[in-house]
Write a protein that binds this DNA or RNA. Structure first.
Length: 424
DNA sequence: TCTGGGGTCCTAGGACCC
DNA sequence: TCTGGGGTCCTAGGACCC
């Protein structure tokens, strides 16, 4: 038996989710925008063929998209999250061990005899995902996560591979590695790609074979690990049990600059409410809370400020976290600055069931239980009747700075009113 | 006018201790 | 005049990922 690592991911995931919901979009150029309708974060293959690149600010290409007849959608994370869950449960049923790596990607171990060709297994899985969910996926196979990533890239980049590629059984793997540009190697970002190119390292094969000491001097152990992975030594094991988060952040850009300290208070309060909900869902409490705001980094005279408070006792109680956060707002607000983003950061997280050995905890145990039950009730009401059913006055009603999402698709899989009607 | 959001890991350097 | 060495902890910043 040999153990092969697979990387399975959705092609153009957000765009494909929109298409699976609305069949009239299939075959058409389509882009999905980031929050606030800011940048292009996903493109259908037809949009890609038109030369529309990832990360482009929407306002710069809006007219071009109109002219080319490209369909535009605001991001609909309720839909993508729900499709992701369906995809992952299907994958779980077909893989021995699975690490859910992101909303649209999973690593898996696949066991088979050493001479086994895993292509039939991969083709069958790919077909079933398409049949059940309407989503196209790609499957890359290799000896390590790094190799599986490369194979996945080649599965998508070469049409003849039809979404499945196994680096371990490929006839001339070095040639395939040479066809992958250094920028497309997992773990090589903009800075490192530039550094590599200056040294004549322009593709995955050259990175794999470059002098180890040179890589170590620039990238430390991270670089060495990456190189070993490309050589086929698995250094990064699958994370099979999800680990608890070390920090949790809620932040947003505003649809227009914040005009006064009261608006900033409302925004911070809104994010604290969200972050507290997240903490409770993760069954964690925060020991440290940071609020921050900034102006646009693209405008002159950049301003950015943060303020932090250590809590007496770690908490996930919205009222306590609001009381801690709101006094910090005046420390970060600055008049005459066009503040366009703010957020809160919860840090020093600890498990909520962990009873802290602290005198005050014992003294206030009853009170704490009462508060926990209250928060639990609020969470259940909001879950059942829709987010915002029970709100907090400090967040403001109908704020003028909230997110722009002009081209939102329906929440067909998660909200009853939006379920598509099928006429018999 | 208009440029996303939420994470992780690693390293270097300072503070502090014995 | 001459001022050690090694360890730990914390933080800020850099780089990356999707």
């Amino acid at each position: 038996m040999s153990r092969v690592t697979a990387l399975i991911d959705g092609n153009n995931f957000y765009a494909s989710c929109e298409q699976s919901l609305d069949a009239s979009l299939i075959g058409r150029p389509l882009v999905v925008l980031s929050n606030n309708d800011g940048c292009i974060v996903a493109r259908s293959s037809e949009a890609r063929a038109l030369g529309i690149s990832m990360g482009t600010p929407y306002f710069k290409v809006r007219h071009k998209l109109d002219r080319l007849g490209v369909v535009v959608r605001s991001s609909n994370y309720a839909l993508y999250g729900d499709m992701s869950q369906r995809l992952m449960s299907l994958l779980e049923a077909h893989c021995e061990e699975l690490e859910i790596y992101s909303i649209d990607e999973a690593f898996a171990y696949v066991n088979g005899p050493s001479d086994d060709n895993l292509k039939p297994w991969a083709r069958q899985l790919r077909a079933q995902v398409h049949r059940n969910l309407g989503l196209p996926i790609a499957i890359g196979l290799g000896a390590s996560k790094g190799q599986a990533k490369l194979a996945n890239h080649l599965a998508k980049a070469i049409p003849a591979h039809a979404g499945v590629f196994n680096l371990l059984t490929a006839s001339d793997p070095d040639t395939w590695l040479e066809s992958v540009a250094i920028e497309n190697v997992w773990g090589i970002g903009r800075k490192l790609a530039h550094w590599c190119r200056l040294r004549g390292v322009t593709n995955a094969r050259q990175l794999r074979d470059m002098p180890r000491s040179q890589l170590h001097a620039r990238c430390g152990v991270v670089g060495i690990r990456l190189q070993r992975e490309l050589q086929g030594h698995a250094c990064l094991p699958l994370a099979l049990a999800p680990t608890s988060k070390q920090e949790t952040c809620v932040s947003r850009s505003f649809s227009r600059p914040i005009a006064n300290p009261e608006e900033l208070r409302q925004a911070i309060a809104t994010y604290v409410v969200r972050a507290s909900e997240k903490l409770r869902r993760q069954q964690q409490r925060a020991g440290t809370l940071t609020v921050f705001t900034r102006t646009s980094p693209f405008a002159p005279a950049f301003y950015s400020q943060a303020a932090t408070i250590q809590l007496d006792l770690p908490s996930n109680d919205t009222a306590i976290l609001l009381a801690a956060a709101l006094p910090l707002v005046e420390r970060i607000y600055r008049p005459h600055c066009r503040l366009n983003k703010a957020g809160v950061l919860m840090q020093n997280l600890q498990s909520a069931d962990h009873l802290q050995q602290h005198l005050l905890v014992a003294v206030h145990a009853d009170e704490q239980h009462r508060r926990d039950r209250l928060m639990n009730t609020i969470d259940r009401l909001n879950h059942r009747y829709g987010s915002g059913t029970v709100g907090w006055a400090v967040c403001g009603m109908q704020p003028g700075w909230s997110m722009r999402r002009h081209q939102l698709s329906r929440a067909a899989t998660t909200r009853l009113n939006d379920v598509p009607l099928v006429l018999a």
